[in-house]
Design a binder for these strands. Structure first.
Lengths: 208, 208
DNA sequence: TAGATTGTTAATCGATTAACAATC
DNA sequence: TAGATTGTTAATCGATTAACAATC
């Protein structure tokens, strides 16, 4: 199958547009032109129109995009058929913050299992999410049909954790550890190195 | 001044190389070839060599890069002359997690002031960092000579917070709120939308 | 020296923007 | 209709990779 005609960047922006559309619908808005959508998303109108192409959704030159069906198109394009559950490995400060962040219900994605090496944490609930022991990963992921995982483990533990997750059937990892992960083909890794973002910001503060 | 011959991407990677070099030095390594550096950073050797060009640092075809002077070059290139302090606005779950994360001392950057609207939080210490009231921003930033800020405030509060920060002399903002910020010219904004990363990861889990 | 690696330029690749006929 | 906006292609821009002479 000729996959990968959409870049990750486009996917990310489509998700952002969806949140904007949700907000607009909540405010009672019914139509939005590409320009207004672009302003709210912080991109250009041309970018918006190009991004929408991959979803097959089209608007009207006079009224713009009808938000309800736009919303449905985005949901159909972005979401899996069944609700998509996410696991998080590493319930430290960052892990707990993310659990709290995503338990708000704003996002379509729900973290439904947490894992930690600390036996003290296993069995407890964090922001409503049950924490399991690391070696329960295969069993729990299978039971909950989880294919996406967030890794907020210390950098030393990251490579081994990634292997465990891949072995347990995880297809995509959001990795907060600042280390490249070696995973089997077919497993997607999205790296988010917070330190790198802060260092970039700091650099541009001084460069002016 | 003809600024901006370096892209943010290069800057981010240079910071990453520095952390790798630090680790290597700590392990007693003295030289590293571009290929090995590339493996540890998860990029190509060509990328490494090209990135290094902007720093002016050069290695030896036989031994590779001498790590001590490489480290010095990176520090000179990336760091400000005086130690660079950072403020964080919004001491919620995410804010506290970042305070903890960066107080580890692994990074060169120190968060030396926190701000929150909650009067309960003002005056307290979070992971060793003092929390102030929002309206103390101008005074504290000036006193501490802070030019970089992390924004972990709710999305509704983000635009106003960015304006306050810019007015108080902040030159660069790392923004976690999923909303585009309008800031005066000369102020850099680095957006980090965690939800977007998770949505991307989830998409690629299902797309296979 | 011979050979691998370096710095650097040229070629490629991909993503963004500009342009414009089609459309409501 | 006239005019602004759409979908879509072509042009541009920037970043990555390939190539190779210079070098240790």
């Amino acid at each position: 199958m000729a996959q990968k005609q959409f870049s990750g960047k486009t996917i990310g922006r489509l998700g952002f547009y969806r949140r904007i559309v949700d907000d607009a619908l909540a405010k009672g808005e019914q139509y939005l032109h590409s320009h207004e959508l672009a302003v709210r998303a912080g991109v250009t109108a041309a970018q918006v129109r190009r991004d929408l192409m991959v979803t097959g959704f089209s608007g009207s030159p006079t009224r713009g995009y009808e938000l309800k069906s736009f919303h449905n198109t985005l949901a159909h394009f972005l979401d899996a058929k069944s609700p998509q559950h996410v696991a998080i490995v590493g319930v430290g400060n960052l892990g707990r913050a993310l659990l709290s962040y995503f338990s708000g219900g704003r996002s379509k994605l729900v973290i439904s299992a947490a894992f930690d090496t600390d036996p003290e944490k296993a069995g407890r609930l964090f922001h409503g999410c049950r924490c399991y022991q690391i070696d329960e990963i295969p069993e729990v992921l299978k039971k909950e049909q989880i294919r996406t995982a967030i890794m907020t483990v210390p950098v030393e533990a990251a490579p081994a954790t990634a292997s465990r997750l891949a072995a347990a059937g995880i297809k995509s990892i959001l990795n907060f550890a600042p280390v490249p992960l070696r995973v089997p083909e077919g497993v997607h890794v999205e790296n988010l190195d917070v330190t790198m973002f802060l260092e970039k910001a700091a650099f541009f503060a001084r460069a002016r």
